[in-house]
């Protein structure tokens, strides 16, 4: 459940803020979000990663469809990729890396600071 919550929230956050925030700020935002949601490490990792991967992949596809530009193909050649579709995959993949690790770190921090269940301090 928390996977879905974190995934959806990350998705919304990224969609709303990406136009203004460059990727290091997106990383910080996902880190904070994963901390707040407090899912497990592995679930946060995949939720944050797949949310950003999806946004980046879809955004790249949309730009490509919108512009009909040859730029993705040209950039593929420039980056030594032998298939121009790979530039979309690489973009999505990089989105996954940028989304997943901050989410994992956020979840792990929450794990440290979380009060042990059922044990009061007093």
């Amino acid at each position: 459940m928390k996977f879905i919550i974190l995934f959806v929230l990350s998705l919304l956050l990224v969609v709303m803020l990406s136009a203004w925030l460059t990727f290091p700020f997106i990383m910080i935002a996902i880190f904070l979000l994963a901390y707040v949601v407090g899912s497990s490490g592995i679930s946060s990792f995949f939720a944050g990663g797949s949310a950003l991967a999806l946004v980046w992949f879809v955004k790249a596809m949309m730009i490509s469809a919108n512009t009909q530009s040859e730029l993705p193909a040209k950039m593929s050649i420039l980056m030594g990729l032998n298939n121009s579709f790979l530039i979309f995959v690489v973009t999505g993949g990089l989105g996954f890396v940028i989304g997943s690790f901050p989410a994992l770190s956020g979840a792990l921090l929450r794990n440290i600071l979380r009060k042990p269940k059922g044990e009061g301090w007093y």
Partner: peptide, 17 residues
């Protein structure tokens, strides 16, 4: 690479005519 491939700020934004 992060800056360059970010579809909101990187090279993708230069696809518009």
């Amino acid at each position: 690479l992060g800056k360059l491939l970010d579809p909101h700020h990187g090279f993708w934004q230069n696809a518009y005519s």
